[in-house]
Design a protein around this nucleic acid. Sequence first.
DNA 1: AAATAAGTGTGATTTAAATCACACGAACTA
DNA 2: TAGTTCGTGTGATTTAAATCACACTTATTT
Lengths: 241, 241
Amino acid sequence: MGACTQQQNFCSYQNTDVFSKNTFQYLESIMYPKKVGADQFLFLDNDTADKLFYLREGQIKITKVTEEGKELVLYIFQEGDLIGELGVSSDSRYNYSAKATRDCDVGVIQQQDLETIIWQHGEVAVEFMKWMSNMHAITRSKFRDLMLYGKKGALCSTLIRLANSYGKMTSSGITLSQHFTNTDLAELIGTSRETVNRMLSQLKKEGVVTFEAGGNIKITDLAYLKNACSCEDCPLEICRI
Amino acid sequence: MGACTQQQNFCSYQNTDVFSKNTFQYLESIMYPKKVGADQFLFLDNDTADKLFYLREGQIKITKVTEEGKELVLYIFQEGDLIGELGVSSDSRYNYSAKATRDCDVGVIQQQDLETIIWQHGEVAVEFMKWMSNMHAITRSKFRDLMLYGKKGALCSTLIRLANSYGKMTSSGITLSQHFTNTDLAELIGTSRETVNRMLSQLKKEGVVTFEAGGNIKITDLAYLKNACSCEDCPLEICRI
DNA sequence: AAATAAGTGTGATTTAAATCACACGAACTA
DNA sequence: TAGTTCGTGTGATTTAAATCACACTTATTT
């Protein structure tokens, strides 16, 4: 409860934290390995959605691209995250793409294999519902943040989420352990690179963020960010990128 | 497949269409009735999310309200829809409100009772996953439509969704069987009443919509609307309001 | 039938954000 | 080491949308 209290390096919460050791073993038993190189796609918009993917190593961005090339990044998944949809009909298709930002190690799970296990084991079913519920709550909370508080609120919300997913607590603030370019942030927010740059400059001037060597963002006034997007201190598993 | 081909009056698809007769009987067996008067709240933002609600009769709007009073309507549920979350932890809370727009007849389902059934019956689990999956897909597709194509695209997308949920096919177009005010539409889109009014006037001038007696909208050029939000002809159970 | 409330339609103005344009620095790369 | 790519920083301009202000129409109430 309450965001950004973690002392760990980063990725403190994966969306698979809802699974018990037992369930995880079932998953492992039906998983087969796959490598995805940097900048390759794990799957494309409109591909048949008949698999789930467990991200062992690397990073996957889920994106939606318009015909004019405008890109919206819906999620950034980390090692330990499970990617995909469950319970969809056999001819269902993804309506987003999944792109590896670096070399990835993935475990592929056939939806059908998983549904067999779910069918047989009630506790697995309930855990998967929790996983689905969490994923939906993440989407809903982003929807709200990006729609209701203007581009500035959207940026502040995104910085908080990045802090929860990549933040390292220090005495002087929360440092993001990964560099995000202005363009990266713009795609997360649905705005232009220039607008992000101007807003970040402003936040820097106001003492809300500073920049570490290498350009990594350090958040020095979390309260300001929370206020800008009417943060409701939702649980860490939901307030993520 | 393909939107707006229905000849029926309206509400052709409920989110409970994924359930088998058998599952539905389980639901009925643990449901108890509740009345909610017009303009009353079924639940409030931050209430404990330990129940599901089956809407037998009436209409429920799911809304998120900011501190400044700006309102965003996330869904409008109809008779036959199931409302709520499943698989969340016992201390989980709604982060949106549910308001009856008219007198409602609701069946209340304790989450715990349902989880017991899910635990025991694999087929129920799988059907509920499909339900959850659908709900998430609705949220995601709205997110995309409202973020990527400006306010005009957002309005056009919303009109298509309304057509799918309330449209009655006629020889001259698709008539919405319910009146939606400019303010209603503005809250669905996250914009101002004036902007909706101006956009609708423009669409009328361009011959995309007309107004029936009583002010109900009739869509006369669906292709135009689809084009404005890069409609991907997603299935009817997802392209709803 | 008059009064009140709720909804529509539109101008004028302000504000937010996108777009265009270009200078500059840092980081690779050949 | 010169060239190229990639990212940053900022002005100027345009466009989209919100806000303000008010007239007018249509329901609803008493």
